[in-house]
């Protein structure tokens, strides 16, 4: 297993959507400077669990989370936890690129502005440039920062969303199938970007693409029917999984 210290620790987590018991007793550590991949068949709960890591499930009526999830030791479901602040520390990138219908500049500057991270226009400019650079998009958009974010290509839009997520200086980035709407070239660029960002953030990625999980992550968690079946080093999971169900899934024998 990885030697990096845990950034987020989930213990005995259950998630319900009304009567539907979507996550059953999941305990897992997400480690600093690691890319952790969540894999599993549709409906296995991996996205649900991902969303419970920054309380995105709060917005879904009837959703209920029990158990304990901690970020640097702090209970994220504690009453005193500021959810807006939490989501700045634990950022999210979605399956479908969803830039705001605003300029490229505004897309990235919005978060730092509302969180008061910039004291001046110059500082905001620096944050925007740094975020777009880290997202590998700066050179492509630096001459048209006032163009609408929605005018970019799909792959560029996704990188814009990643720039937006990292603009507020998060500690963890959650990615929910970030490449499933992208072509192979745009996918490769995102994967390269994940690789570059790895040392700076803890990254969790949900993906249906097994090869992608194998390529980008250091650790892999396999979910099935709401349970965490196996969690380990990616190289072990894909060459020599311990659990029969993991093996059947990754070798294409599932179901």
């Amino acid at each position: 297993m990885s030697n990096n210290p845990p950034k987020m620790t989930a213990s005995h987590v259950d998630v319900y959507y009304g009567a539907n018991h979507a996550i059953r007793d999941v305990s897992i550590d997400v480690c600093q400077e690691d890319v952790t991949a969540f894999i599993g068949p549709s409906g296995c709960g991996k996205s649900t669990f991902l969303r419970s890591l920054n309380r995105m499930n709060d917005t879904i009526p009837g959703a209920r989370v029990s158990g304990d999830i901690r970020l640097d030791g702090d209970d994220i479901y504690a009453r005193e936890m500021d959810v807006v602040q939490l989501r700045a520390r634990v950022g999210m990138v979605f399956q479908k690129p969803n830039p705001f219908p605003k300029s490229i500049y505004e897309n990235v500057a919005y978060g730092p502005k509302i969180h008061g991270l910039a004291q001046s226009k110059a500082e905001l400019d620096r944050i925007v440039e740094r975020s777009l650079s880290r997202a590998g998009l700066w050179n492509e958009v630096k001459d048209r920062l006032s163009d609408s974010g929605t005018a970019l290509s799909g792959g560029q839009q996704q990188r814009l969303c990643i720039a937006r997520a990292i603009a507020v200086d998060p500690e963890v980035i959650l990615m929910d199938e970030p490449c499933s709407a992208l072509d192979p070239v745009a996918t490769a660029r995102i994967e390269e970007l994940i690789h570059d960002l790895r040392g700076r953030y803890a990254i969790v990625i949900v993906t249906h693409n097994m090869q992608q999980a194998a390529r980008v992550s250091q650790r892999t968690a396999f979910f099935h029917l709401g349970q965490l079946i196996e969690y380990g080093d990616t190289s072990d999971i894909f060459t020599n999984p311990r659990q029969e169900r993991t093996k059947d899934y990754i070798t294409g024998r599932y179901g």
Partner: peptide, 9 residues
């Protein structure tokens, strides 16, 4: 086929 696990081995 991109074999995995026991298939790959």
């Amino acid at each position: 086929r991109a074999p995995m696990a026991n298939d790959l081995r």
